[in-house]
Design a protein around this nucleic acid. Sequence first.
DNA 1: GATTTAGTTTCATTATTTGGAACCATAAGT
DNA 2: ACTTATGGTTCCAAATAATGAAACTAAATC
Lengths: 259, 259
Amino acid sequence: MNATAKSDGTVGKALRMLDLVAEFGRPVRFTDILAMSPHPKATTYRLLQTLTNQHMLEFNEGDGTYALGGRLMRLAHAAWKTASLAPIARPFIEDLAAEVGETVHLAQIDQGQVLFVDKLQATDRFETLAQVGKIAPAYCTGVGKAMLAFLAPKRLQLAMLQQAYFQYTPATITNAAALESELEQIRASGIAYDREEHEEGIISIAAPILSSNGRVIGALSIATATTRHSLEGLDAFRVPLLETAEKIGAEATHWQFPA
Amino acid sequence: MNATAKSDGTVGKALRMLDLVAEFGRPVRFTDILAMSPHPKATTYRLLQTLTNQHMLEFNEGDGTYALGGRLMRLAHAAWKTASLAPIARPFIEDLAAEVGETVHLAQIDQGQVLFVDKLQATDRFETLAQVGKIAPAYCTGVGKAMLAFLAPKRLQLAMLQQAYFQYTPATITNAAALESELEQIRASGIAYDREEHEEGIISIAAPILSSNGRVIGALSIATATTRHSLEGLDAFRVPLLETAEKIGAEATHWQFPA
DNA sequence: GATTTAGTTTCATTATTTGGAACCATAAGT
DNA sequence: ACTTATGGTTCCAAATAATGAAACTAAATC
């Protein structure tokens, strides 16, 4: 009867099953899901059936596995087009990518995490896997820190509180105090760096995107491998990065960032 | 009490609300949704609340609108990575795109429609909007016809039956008989063309991707503008296209295409 | 051929959803 | 200022859908 134990309804249960399947990262058999499911066998079974009927899952007759379904991709495409910064920001990002010749990421904050909504690679290489929908923690990425730094105090507090720090690399910031002081610097300079904090060998320079009312609505980063550029090298992109973030913010003023 | 009128449960109702929001193609107010909703006011309201709590929708306090939420993009990303041909096909598509210097699409069939799961643009241009999750009818696209042609007869029949033909352009095929004979030709040649049938000025050459057991698991196309190439010009890409489709099919043999 | 394992169905019980109606706040009309 | 509309929200008894223990089937393993 308390707040946390309150039932979240049939829809909530069904969606949690989707998360479960997603977490496996591969097609899964009924038993695999059952082992992770908070529900008894019959319930779990029916939940999967429902989801399959609704095309949120697809059941493979061949090997008896469930996988996430096509309806999700359709809906997400619609989400991307109507509810993300990406379509608005696209032309600006293209210019930036062409100018700097490095990978450009566009991210937003979603449920306290970094949600990548676009990725563009200049140059002739293709290494770009479609990154849309990928998530990462905020505290150890350039875009994440850029957004945290400019979050309204109340929201920041909320985000910090529920943060669990995981040491991805030796450089990862793993406590609130260190993060706070880093954010302070970012606030002063308007620029955030990822110094191989999430992935070894990958660094980035990031800037927040602020709407005209001063709220953070996203962040933009230029990422590269340490083999191609040093952190100081990335700094050369500071001006075009900031300018682009500015332009996107101006363009997106009507778009209000959801909680 | 008959098959179609059977209730599809709470989850089904909730998901249909998502479709509704998606159809609008913009953030929508409660009233807009209510007008389209099959449910009375209170029910519609609660459905939206549930979805919002579950982060499938995001409610914008500012202007009181609902939009599709970030959770969808996360899930879709997982779907793309684990349940689509894209990750397997990516390296091959990259080579193809580099070789032909034109846009390459990778598609699958989902619920009788073409579902684009990857898009790659060679050359220096960027015009590629992230196309993942976009859908199109099967009967008027190159990839769609390529897949229809090699569908198992039973499945084809099913797909044809529930097909409604819409005339997108003067060249669109708008009846089953014409489509059948076109499919016959495709079966013979192994190649499908889109002769500006879906969008004026856009043509493509497409090939099915067959798994080793002979089932269609997807299709690959090279698309271009009529201003850049003629249909005959596209034909020059026939060999690399077929080879790439072959390679992907071989690689993806373990991956079985869901209904 | 007996036993385990994985998947599926049944059905009385239980919990959730439903929706008409009442309610509130703000905007518009007189 | 007062009435009427409009858009959104909440209530709660009734209607409906979800639940899960147990029984069952099919296939694999001993």
